[in-house]
Structures are given as C-alpha cells and as structure tokens.
Design a protein around this nucleic acid. Sequence first.
DNA 1: TCCAATTGTTACGGAGGCGTTATAGTTTGG
DNA 2: CCAAACTATAACGCCTCCGTAACAATTGGA
Lengths: 116, 116
Amino acid sequence: MSVSLRPSEALALWHDVTLDLVRDGGHDFSSRQITILLTIYLEPPPHTVRGLAAKLKVTKPVITRALDTMGALDLVTRRRDETDRRNVIIQRTVKGALFVEKMGDIIVARAKELPR
Amino acid sequence: MSVSLRPSEALALWHDVTLDLVRDGGHDFSSRQITILLTIYLEPPPHTVRGLAAKLKVTKPVITRALDTMGALDLVTRRRDETDRRNVIIQRTVKGALFVEKMGDIIVARAKELPR
DNA sequence: TCCAATTGTTACGGAGGCGTTATAGTTTGG
DNA sequence: CCAAACTATAACGCCTCCGTAACAATTGGA
C-alpha cells in the first residue's frame, strides 16, 4: 500500500502523460497495445499469445495483430518454443526496453510537477 | 510539487490501470482520444476544435472525428458559439463525467495497492 | 498409430482512423 | 459592401484494426 493520490490528481497525471505521448511519441497506441507492451516488459517471462489473450480478456488474433505491429516497430520479437513447438515465446528488444524506460521517465516527471 | 514515484512504480501503475480499462472498459480508446476527453473534463472551458488541435499538435479533422466518435457514445456534445458562429463549443455530458470519474477511481485504487 | 485437443496464424468483410484537400458558413477590415 | 481570412466539417483514398471462422502445425492420450 503506497502511492497516495486524490482523483483530481490522478486524472491530471493521466492527462499530462497521455498528452506527452501524443505530442512527442510519434505513435498513437491504443490501450490494448500499451497493455500488451507493458505486460511483456514488466511481468516475468515467458509470455505467450494465449497467456496474453487470457490476461487481457481478448481473443488471440488481437494479440497476434498487436505483435505484428509492434514487431514491425522492433518493440518486441517472437520465437518458437522448442520444447513445445505449438507455442510462441514473445521476447523483449533493446528498442522496446528504451521505449518503456522513456515512458516511465515521462510519468515520473509529470507526477513530480503535479500541483496539489 | 508532489507525487513521488519511481520509474518501476510508475510503469506498474500505468500497466495496471490500462489493464483495467481494457478488461472492463468496453471501449478501446487511443491516446489521442483519451487526451481529448480528459482535456475537456479537466481544463476550464470553453473548448474549441481549433484550441484542442493546437494543444495536441494534431490537425483539426482529427479533433472533429474524435468528437464524432465520443459524441456518438454521448461522452461529449457540441454547440455553436452564438457570439462567433464559426466556432463550435465542446461541452461535457453527464455520461462523460461519470466515465471520467470512474477512470479517476481506477487510477486511485491501483495507486493505493501498488507494492513498493 | 491415429485422432482429438491445443497452439498460433490467416482470411474475410466491415468499421473507423489517418492526412490532405476541398467546401460551406461566418466574420472582419479596407 | 465585398473580398480575404478564419471557422469547422466533408470527401477522398489509404491503412489498420475488429470479430468470426477456418486453417496448418504440433502434441498427447486412447
């Protein structure tokens, strides 16, 4: 238990950060895409298409398409699971790690300058 | 100046909240749409298409289309500015206010249960 | 062995977003 | 009073995403 935020502060923070992402980010990701990216980079591996789909309560093609998009941007990679070749293991990339790190910095900076 | 967050906490918070929005929200808004909605509900009126476009650094049709979408969902409304009929004033709705309020509650709740 | 179950992907038609450009309505200044 | 400036929106072709359904590859149990 930990970060104490009032609703108005919480919304102001969300507003400021998404504004930064829109203005400076270059990309315009949906909530689904953001969630998939952060899950891959924050939760312990391995990550599979089925696992992500279950966690987000969406269908598998949604995950496949999001991986296609973010793979084309070099934010994630896919690899066959050799122990069970039906599975696909989703892996992190240097570029993706930098992207997520930058996002963390934006949130921290905006939280710091929040009026209260 | 105020909310102290470390990068890992910031990202975990973002992940948890977007996950809630994806799973329970029903909608899958883009960063642009979220920013537009929060700007309307957090910053003092009046809001115009031109003003929002300038703030977000996007073209005006982007704003018009977003207002079409959120208007169809009854999250915002439009009204002609009678003092200068070229302008359109974007207004809040009860449904939109409830949506934003719920979003604030989600962020607060996720911040509270953040491990640190 | 072979067939049912499970994996991820592709195909399909439809819906909606994009940027650019064109348009209609309104205001303002010479 | 009228042309230039400014507002928001519509139209265009393109692209990406959606959900459903079909699919190929792989596994494991009867």
